[in-house]
């Protein structure tokens, strides 16, 4: 009797267990909302247990957010940070891709400069901040240099590697049909390196955000990093969290933007590599 019951229960179980995998987007969204609520509840609990220095009340964070946004402080800081991120990333992307193309396409150059590029790449970007301060000062242009310096190498190295490792079979195909060097380079090797270049850019963008906050914390305080430091120093944790939320949103938006670009440019890559 009990055995029979067990069987009737056991049979549909695999189907029931599978169902959550096929959750629709609405259900996923509901689960995510639940996580957010859990975090908010957790913050309230921690606040009640350990005081507002350890964890501010989410309502206070909201109050501070509204205040910072309405008096223009947040917008100004966001503008300053975005300027540094955008210009730093732009310069590192342009110079990183150009230098990467040069090193990836020229075996002599790459062999000569490889150890230097690796040495610079292995040095933490922050190590150069004192030197950059001496050379460029403490303000926006110096911060852009910090970001450029930090984001340059991953972009450069990924570009160079992508080109140096371009698919030999495709290059040989081009040669067999009479393509000359320039054609092989720009029409086969560089496009073939595009996925690698794009992943270099994605890493570079992430580093740009980190580099900007570090520069704003350690050099002349400005932007979101500056707000963060000021709030932290005065133990205004509600204000501090309001800034952190904006930084999170900024980083997420940047990554999403690059993923979108990657998908647009790399439509042909779907399912590739499964064949030959």
């Amino acid at each position: 009797m009990s055995l029979e019951q067990n069987e009737t229960v056991a049979a549909p179980a695999p189907i029931a267990r599978r169902r959550p995998v096929a959750l629709g987007p609405a259900a996923i969204l509901a689960l995510q909302a639940a996580v957010v609520i859990a975090i908010i509840v957790g913050m309230f609990a921690l606040n009640a247990a350990a005081g507002k220095l350890v964890m501010p009340k989410p309502t206070e964070v909201l109050d501070q957010s509204i205040k910072l946004w309405s008096d223009g402080t947040m917008l100004k800081a966001l503008g300053e940070s975005v300027t540094v991120i955008a210009l730093g990333f732009l310069f590192s992307a342009v110079s990183g891709i150009l230098l990467g193309v040069l090193l990836g396409g020229n075996r002599l150059l790459s062999r000569v400069f490889d150890p230097f590029v690796n040495a610079l790449n292995s040095t933490p970007g922050a190590a150069f901040i004192p030197l950059i301060i001496v050379w460029f000062g403490l303000y926006t242009e110096a911060k852009i240099v910090v970001v450029w310096n930090a984001a340059l190498f991953p972009i450069l190295i990924n570009t160079a590697a992508g080109i140096a490792n371009a698919n030999r079979d495709l290059v040989e195909m081009g040669r067999a049909f009479g393509a000359k060097r320039a054609m092989l380079f720009w029409r086969i090797m560089v496009p073939d390196a595009l996925p690698s270049i794009l992943s270099g850019l994605r890493i570079g963008a992430a580093i740009s955000t980190v580099g900007t906050v570090i520069a704003e914390l350690t050099m002349a305080q400005s932007g979101l990093g500056g707000l963060l430091a000021a709030a932290g120093n005065r133990f205004q944790m509600d204000r501090y969290f309001a800034v952190v939320i904006v930084l999170m949103a900024l980083g997420t938006a940047l990554t999403a933007l690059l993923r979108y670009a990657e998908r647009r440019l790399g439509r042909w890559r779907v399912v590739q590599g499964e064949g030959s």
């Binding site: 079979d169 495709l170 040989e172 195909m173 081009g174 040669r175 067999a176 049909f177 009479g178 393509a179 054609m183 029409r187 086969i188 496009p191 073939d192 595009l194 042909w268 890559r269 590739q272 064949g275 030959s276």
Partner: peptide, 30 residues
């Protein structure tokens, strides 16, 4: 190498970022 001699490979070696017609246009451009 040149247009008087053409090669067909064991794997088709099509340029994956070009369409089918783009691949043929590529060698015509050469």
């Amino acid at each position: 190498p040149g247009p008087d001699l053409a090669m067909v490979f064991q794997s088709a070696r099509l340029l994956p970022w070009l369409t089918v017609s783009g691949n043929i246009e590529f060698v015509l451009e050469l």
